[in-house]
Design a protein around this nucleic acid. Structure first.
Length: 397
DNA sequence: GATACGTGGCC
DNA sequence: TGGCCAAGTAT
């Protein structure tokens, strides 16, 4: 428990004004800051920006606003369309909760976001940060907005050396000292811009910082040491095979279960992602997966797949198995594990396609021109494009 | 409190 | 090149 040293109010007041002056002169002209403040736009941008960089989120924000200009438009959208538009942005639970929240706002609030932090906090996908940010930025309420940027500023300002996340309560207390009703919406944005442009994680530019005279970390000589974080556990590696089944109309994809990794997204059928490549993922594991696809169960492949090393009976080779082309393999790093995946490609006849779709009701055909897949699967199609011979695309094989 | 949950850029 | 980092939330 770090004791927060209360700064004298006159100093806080002066520094606060200095940071707002800096923001007026140097704040970023981001798309969601243009025009009148609109709770829907503020909320949309905040959700997209969770754990996501501004350059990555910006084009998605523009596209969503074009497709669904109001919360009512979004609430009326098809689930699959929203998920497809989110593809590539990551943390897909955000998209499911975004849609759920839009529908709650329309149903319970007549399409108008509640203008108080407590009610915002109850909405799907709203946590302490987003509720405070929307309250402040959309409704100009003096909420205590604390995100990773503001955590960095506060741990440096007060030299809080308790490792995160244990330091969060102290950080909140520190940040709360700076909140005032005057320019309540600009304040957190000024802090976040300053944290991004000046109080950066690495090589902070302290000689440009409006708060430098009060910064204990700077005074002690190592501001980049803050915030202190607990060491991360090593990231395990897993292995799998992904199947690119080409048809006359596109590629076979499955709608994934709503919960868990890539929940609610379209994906390519794939084997279980096993912790070891031994004895042979691209042999027995792949063969078992293909057998399940033939018999149905393509949407539960991770649930009842035998793990590598089990002496589950190897099914007889399928007819046409030799038509698979191994396009290569690639790596994809998720939050909590790294995946090495081999890409198997083959052309399905119309009969096989019909049979596969009958057996696996979560499967459908996605035109190759559509960009609806999470990056982990988009990479497989890209690898296919780079390596597979054109004759696989012919309509009759 | 610990863990699950994506992706891309940077050094 | 592998680890770190980015406007967190849900369980």
């Amino acid at each position: 428990m770090t004791a927060i040293i209360l700064k004298d109010e006159a100093l806080v007041s002066r520094l606060r004004r200095g940071l707002l002056d800096w923001y007026d002169a140097h704040g970023r002209a981001l798309a969601w800051r243009q025009g009148a403040r609109d709770a829907y736009r503020v909320w949309l941008s905040e959700v997209m920006l969770q754990q996501t960089t501004v350059p990555h989120a910006a084009p998605y924000y523009e596209k969503f606003l074009t497709l669904w200009p109001t919360v009512r438009d979004l609430a009326a959208a098809e689930d699959g369309r929203v998920m497809a538009e989110w593809a590539g942005l990551g943390y897909y639970a955000r998209a499911r909760r975004l849609l759920e929240c839009a529908r709650v706002v329309v149903r319970d609030y007549d399409g108008i976001f509640p203008a108080n932090e407590a009610d915002l906090l109850k909405l799907p996908g709203f946590g302490p940060y987003t509720a405070a940010a929307v309250a402040a930025i959309a409704f100009d309420l003096p909420a205590n907005v604390v995100d990773g940027n503001i955590e960095r500023i506060m741990t440096r300002l007060y030299a809080i050396d308790t490792p995160l996340p244990a330091a969060k309560s102290d950080i909140r207390l520190a940040a709360a000292q700076w909140v005032l009703p005057e320019r309540a919406g600009d304040w957190p944005q000024a802090l976040m811009d300053m944290a991004t442009l000046i109080c950066r994680p690495k090589s902070p530019v302290c000689d440009q910082c409006p708060l430098a005279v009060a910064c204990l970390a700077l005074e002690r000589g190592a501001p980049e040491r803050f915030p202190v974080k607990l060491a991360k556990l090593p990231k395990p590696r897993r292995y799998g095979v992904v199947f690119v089944m080409l048809t006359g109309e596109g590629v076979v994809v499955e709608r994934r279960a709503d919960k868990g990794l890539l929940g609610g997204m379209l994906g390519l059928p794939h084997t279980e992602w096993v912790p070891s490549s031994s004895p042979d993922v691209s042999g027995e594991v792949a063969r078992n997966a293909l057998a399940r696809f033939r018999d149905g169960g393509g949407n539960s492949i991770t649930k009842d797949a035998p793990s590598v090393g089990d002496d589950a009976p190897t099914p007889p080779p399928q007819a046409g198995e030799d038509q698979w082309v191994v396009a290569g393999s690639y790596e994809h790093v998720f939050t909590h594990f790294a995946l090495t995946q081999e890409v198997w490609v083959r052309r399905l006849s119309d009969e096989e396609t019909a049979s596969m779709l009958r057996a696996n009701n979560a499967w459908q055909i996605l035109p190759l021109s559509e960009k609806a897949l999470p990056t982990v699967f988009a990479k497989a199609l890209k690898l296919k494009d780079q390596t597979v011979t054109p004759d696989l695309f012919r309509s009759n094989v």
